[in-house]
Amino acid sequence: MSGSASTRVLQYHLPDFTLAIEDLKRRVDATQWPNSVYADDWSRGVPKSYLQTVAHYWVHGFDWELWQARLSGMPHFRTEIEGQPIHFLHYRSDRPDAMPLVMTHGWPSSFMEFDQVIPALLNGNGKICFNLVIPSLPGFGFSSPLQSFGWNHRRIAAAWGQLMGQLGYEEFGACGGDTGSLVAPALASLFPQRVVGVHVNGGLLRPHLTADEYLGLRADERRRIDFATELLRLGTGYAHIQATRPQSVGYALTDSPVGLLAWIIEKYKEWTDPRKPLPEEAVDLNDILSTVSLYWLTNTAASSANLYYEVRAEKQMMSPLPRTEVPTGIAVFPTDPVLRHRADQEFNVVHWNEYDRGGHFAAIEAPDLYSADLLEFFSSLERS
């Protein structure tokens, strides 16, 4: 599989993590834990007793051989776009009429978030199935090291357009949550003749509402807005740090695996299904640790944090991308503050479903709902 001589797509062979895993275990066992006053609940961050238990399991209970086998069983490829290594998974359906679909993850996630929905999307629903392209964002996972600044949502979307062209996909669908919920619509704005449809979930942006607008919402809509309002009040410190000083916090996250674990697992506590009190009740702990391990072993804690800085600069320096009429489907989960009447102003919404379980990481929290929603949306579209 290859593109032109300057844009070769090559199968990617995973590095040997044996020594790095041994070093990780040594570092975790040697963690210097704080001895100051701390809370046993989550009011000041991840509780010490909870984190000690999870960290101990990470190095003494987590199945590293299974993790490596799981990774090795995936179809890894890498190319180079604008000097940046871009890693992606590429799954091909057995059906010749499969629609190409580029799936974009967010932070603190990875391509592994989509693992549980891949079989359903490859097999399809009788009407449609997909060839799946699942890239790692620049500076994340195996799309590293980060070679230059400026990798904001717009530039990532432009790179995905190039990637799909390298693979021979002139028309394709786009989907994603978190960062992907912004990159996928940007793809439609940049390539409206190539993107046949956009599916998004997992946005964290709370709409600005007047008091009267808020009172006019349904009870379930108010609950989602209240969730986002509380998150904005207490749960966005990480974003301000990564958007302003990613390099400074990056030193700590790169040197301390337990620090990185706390930084990431807190998001699984705060962003997942509100009815699930602990992260591992919403997402299997082994899946959470698989993602944390990927960040640690690829040394991408700092470079992934840099995305927030780039997005902040993008908002300050660039005008918004134009609205397109590309059909858009939106799956709304209990933590998503999106409102239909506001979404209609930004997108050509032709598909809208609301669900009462799942959360921000929908593809791994509620893979059955997520995959079914994707298939339902793309099945409804006209194809050339």
Rank of each mutant, 00 (worst) to 15 (best):
S4H: 09
A5Y: 08
Y12S: 02
F17S: 09
D23N: 13
R26T: 08
R26S: 10
D29F: 02
A30I: 03
A30W: 03
P34V: 05
P34Q: 00
V46N: 07
H56F: 13
Y57T: 12
H60Y: 06
G61Y: 08
F62R: 09
F62N: 08
L71V: 00
H76F: 03
F77T: 01
F77K: 00
F77P: 00
T79P: 14
I81R: 01
P85K: 13
I86G: 03
L89S: 01
H90D: 09
Y91L: 14
S93E: 13
P96A: 14
A98M: 13
M99Y: 02
P100L: 10
S109K: 04
F114V: 00
V117K: 02
V117T: 15
I118C: 06
L121G: 01
L122C: 14
G126E: 13
I128F: 04
F130D: 00
L132W: 12
V133Y: 05
P135V: 04
G139D: 08
G139F: 11
F140N: 04
S144H: 12
P145S: 04
L146K: 02
L146S: 02
F149N: 14
G150Y: 14
R154T: 09
I156Y: 14
W160T: 01
G161A: 00
M164N: 03
Q166S: 01
Q166P: 01
G168V: 10
E170R: 12
F172T: 01
D178W: 07
D178E: 11
D178I: 07
L182Y: 14
A184F: 10
P185G: 02
P192I: 05
L204N: 06
L205P: 00
H208T: 12
H208C: 07
H208M: 09
D212Q: 15
D212Y: 04
E213P: 07
E221N: 06
R224K: 15
T229S: 14
L231I: 04
L234V: 14
H240G: 09
Y251D: 11
A252L: 14
T254M: 13
T254E: 15
D255I: 10
S256T: 08
G259T: 03
A262W: 05
A262H: 06
D273P: 03
P274I: 05
P274V: 09
R275K: 08
P277D: 06
P277C: 06
L278E: 10
V283M: 12
I288D: 02
S290K: 01
V292T: 06
V292F: 07
L294V: 07
W296C: 00
L297W: 09
N299L: 05
A301K: 01
A302K: 14
S303M: 04
S304F: 12
A305D: 07
Y309W: 15
S319A: 15
L321A: 05
T324S: 08
V326P: 09
G329I: 10
G329N: 09
I330G: 03
A331T: 06
F333T: 07
P334F: 12
T335R: 04
A343R: 12
N348P: 06
V350E: 15
V350G: 13
Y355M: 12
G358W: 11
G358A: 10
G359K: 01
A363H: 05
Y370Q: 15
S371I: 13
A372N: 13
E376A: 13
F377S: 01
S379W: 06
L381Y: 10
